[in-house]
């Protein structure tokens, strides 16, 4: 199988004044061409850090990145600055969680899109603006010609996120990273933007990594799913299998705590007690153990290698006993 994104043993550590933050540890990800991978996890689990690593967007002198990252055949961690910026926005693009913060507030939206096109295709300003208009139509922004000259604050939240998508797709990237693109939006707008992304992904033939903390959204968009906790992937596999038969107690907990399509209306929602771990030390045991209903003493020992089949992976010392504990989603 051809993987357009391949991440091996990725570790990201930040040096801060309060010590090191072990934000991401030993992450492996595979994204096949044309597919969508959902990265699921509570906030603070390291999803955004992982995404930014794929484009090497972390401040260089405060960040230590090890492992390997392959995107569209390039070794991202070995690229020079010039090659890196040639790749960003062209081969791989990102849609951010908060479009209000991700647009430059004092430049017109149309000009910001045109700027990227000019940068990567070396075309004139007029050609860039033409592409911007085309992209605004593509993401179904009403009266797109007028909106080209709008400033980000003059748009509604949903429209801003559409414009952000237009910007990200302007140079036809092969990989799109969507970092919680719908989290900041109203519920009805969320669904529209979600459907738009799915439609555009098919139309442009892109591969996509979709970050979310919402199980329902992951089920809606993804082919594959990776569940993150405390900076590690705790479970990974095809979305229908993972959601119908979750192995890891954390995945089970997430399913039990959320509403998702086709769920049994009689199911009671149970939230996971406790809070995610602090990342100020390298966690070698199971990070979820303090909150896990199945935890025993052995869970506080260093984790053995993950349990793996052809398609699936889970990182729990008590497998296979705890696998198959309810609840399940039907997809």
């Amino acid at each position: 199988m051809d993987n357009i994104v391949e991440v091996r043993d990725l570790c990201v550590t930040f040096k801060t004044s309060e010590g090191s933050v072990y934000a991401v540890s030993n992450v492996n990800l595979d994204l096949a061409e044309g597919k969508t991978l959902a990265l699921l996890g509570e906030s603070g689990s390291g999803k955004s850090v992982t995404m930014k690593s794929l484009m090497r967007l972390h401040p260089p002198h405060k960040t230590q990145i090890t492992g390997s990252i392959q995107v569209a055949g390039r070794d991202v961690l070995a690229l020079g600055n010039r090659e890196l910026s040639d790749m960003r926005g062209k081969d791989i693009a990102m849609v951010f969680q908060e479009p209000m913060l991700a647009f430059d507030p004092v430049f017109k939206v149309g000009d910001q899109i045109a700027e990227v096109v000019m940068r990567h295709e070396g075309c004139s300003y007029e050609a860039g603006r033409d592409r911007a208009l085309e992209m605004m139509e593509c993401v179904h922004i009403p009266s797109p010609r007028k909106r080209l000259d709008a400033y980000p604050h003059e748009m509604s939240g949903g429209m801003r996120q559409r414009a952000m998508i237009a910007l990200a797709l302007a140079c036809r990237p092969t990989v799109l990273l969507a970092d919680e693109p719908t989290t900041a939006l109203d519920a009805t707008v969320q669904i529209q933007v979600l459907l738009l992304l799915r439609e555009l992904q098919r139309e442009f033939g892109m591969s996509m990594i979709f970050v979310t903390h919402d199980v329902g959204v992951a089920i809606e968009v993804a082919d594959e799913i990776a569940v993150m906790y405390g900076g590690r992937i705790v479970e990974q596999g095809p979305v229908d299998e993972v959601m119908t038969d979750p192995w890891h107690p954390y995945t089970q907990g997430l399913l039990g705590a959320t509403v998702y399509p086709n769920m049994d209306p009689a199911t009671r929602l149970v939230s996971i007690p406790g809070a995610p771990p602090q990342l100020y030390r390298q966690i070698t045991e199971c990070a979820f153990a303090p909150r896990c209903p199945h935890a025993t003493d052995e869970c506080h020992d260093p984790l053995p290698p993950p349990t793996q089949t052809d398609q699936r992976m889970a990182r729990c010392i008590r497998l296979p006993e705890v696998a198959g504990a309810l609840p399940r989603a039907s997809v």
Partner: peptide, 10 residues
């Protein structure tokens, strides 16, 4: 937004 500008390859 500066992170976003870098992510655009500028």
């Amino acid at each position: 937004f500066v992170t976003s500008l870098r992510a655009r390859g500028l």
